[in-house]
Design a protein around this nucleic acid. Structure first.
Lengths: 148, 148
DNA sequence: CTTGAAAAATGTCCCGT
DNA sequence: ACGGGACATTTTTCAAG
């Protein structure tokens, strides 16, 4: 792992559909070693995979909300139940267990406020142990990078 | 845009390195129409691009924090200055202007607490108009999908 | 690491239905 | 729109300097 690997990662983080030749010229190597480095990064799972970036506004799910959720007990059971339920809620894009004044920070994509209401009231508040939900809606996203 | 397109999108959202044949079999079409649909989704910018997913823990930046930031004035100038400064802070992965009890929700990746302290104190609190920063650190991420 | 070659796999496009 | 098939490009492997 050196600066060339970091350049390869930076390039693929922006656009994964570049061919090896393009990446090679960006990092100042020829195709062969570039190819080998990419494969190595993939095998080491430093590059975990490749995904398509979807414009959810064009799919009608343009409203993004962050939900701060507090749970009643910090037992493994309550936490595991919550995490399991979350997996099957399509509207939840991201679920982070966090430290601080609340327990989970969720990122949710919905089409409109009825949809949002449905997700929060029907799907989230009904989960065992969920005490409190506080939401913030995204007005504008001004930076976005994907790391996982 | 029909249910087949949605299936294609779902497949590519999980793994963009599948070849057209694999996607075709998943959606129940042959290669040609599948290929044409993918190209159409790309041209319509419903698929905005393809990116590599990087395991930041293996790069040493394993600590993720969400920062709630309040600013002093909701004028266009203050907001624009803040957004501009953010673009050049590598540690900031995401910047959302949100409604609610604070103004911006940032997602930040750092290597350790010194690094975090440096980003918050040196880079964020010094920005004009920044009043208050409250942070929550991610203990565990249990779901993660990428939409933009 | 570089260059270059070659095979296999895939992407891409045209045409018939 | 779909499907088949031909052709172009890339990926992947490999050898020699």
């Amino acid at each position: 792992m050196d600066s060339i690997d970091l350049k390869i990662i930076a390039a693929l983080k922006k656009n994964a559909k570049q061919n090896t030749k393009e990446i090679a010229s960006k990092v100042g190597l020829s195709v062969s070693p570039t190819f080998q480095r990419i494969k190595k990064l993939e095998n080491q799972k430093i590059i975990k995979g490749y995904v398509a970036v979807i414009d959810q506004k064009k799919l009608g799910t343009g409203i993004i909300a962050f939900c701060q959720i507090s749970i009643s007990k910090h037992s493994k059971e309550v936490i595991d139940i919550f995490k399991n339920v979350i997996q099957d809620i399509d509207e939840v894009l991201e679920c982070n267990h966090v430290s601080g004044s609340f327990d989970f920070l969720l990122k949710i994509a919905v089409t409109d406020m009825d949809h949002y209401h449905n997700v929060v009231v029907e799907k989230l508040t009904s989960v065992d142990g969920v005490l409190n939900i506080q939401s913030n809606f995204v007005i504008e996203k001004s930076k976005d990078e994907y790391l996982s």
